[in-house]
Amino acid sequence: MSLNRALREECRVPPNPERIEETMRIARMAMQRSGKRAPRSYSYFIIIQLKRAMPASWILQTLLVLASAVFGPLFIAVHYPAVANDPRFVAPLVGCLSIYIAMSGVYLMMRSFRCNMSEIEMSTMVSTRRQLLAKLAILGMRDIAIFGAVIVAVKQTSQMRVATIAGCIMMPFLLANCIGLTLGHNAPSGSHPMRIATLGIALGLALLLAYSFAPNILNLFSSRAGGAICAALLLLCVIRIGKLNAKLSSMNPVAEVD
């Protein structure tokens, strides 16, 4: 007899039918008892995220930005048509707006650490992954609304192609997110609102300087290379968000031996 067969035969233990019946009976009783605990709900969690996870001031900012994204280009087109039609003015403005949107998103995602809420949030039934996904979903909807409005408004008032406008938005947006999430993750003080604001201003100035000294950068945004760069930046953002999720899920610090 081969060893494998011997093992299979050796491991057979004929069960006692009476014990199986008894187990079924007791398990049914246990099932009835455990059903009495109040069911948990995720729908209230989603509602509360919309209602409470975003501070009122943040929502106000979002509305103001949305309004200016829609009415700003219209105003410029009416009163300063030459500016509205010149991509050299439109592209940096749109880029700075996208950096601002990115920084406000980074601030929101890092708030748990900043406000010492992360420890309590980790210990609750809803996993930190779901909590983060809920925030990302809300941010995503906001960003899509604002950027969609910007693209439509700029397209109406200038000669720029949609791909170029999208490139002018996405590249600074993704780059700002990568840098903001990296700094916020590696330096706890990186989540401080003043530091995030300073980073945003610095990136905005860098963008303006880039447009001033290398106007051809605009061609990059509508090219395939620009698309590839955006894809790479998006991947980096996903990785950073994964690391943020890991940090939000556990108190394990960086310096550790396992």
């Binding site: 948990r40 709900s41 509360i48 409470r52 009122a56």
Partner: peptide, 19 residues
């Protein structure tokens, strides 16, 4: 920005309670 009630509402949602 949390008031006491807002905080408890937020935490109860994270704990999976229904409304």
């Amino acid at each position: 920005e949390f008031t006491v009630r807002a905080y408890l509402e937020y935490m109860s949602a994270l704990k999976g309670l229904s409304r």
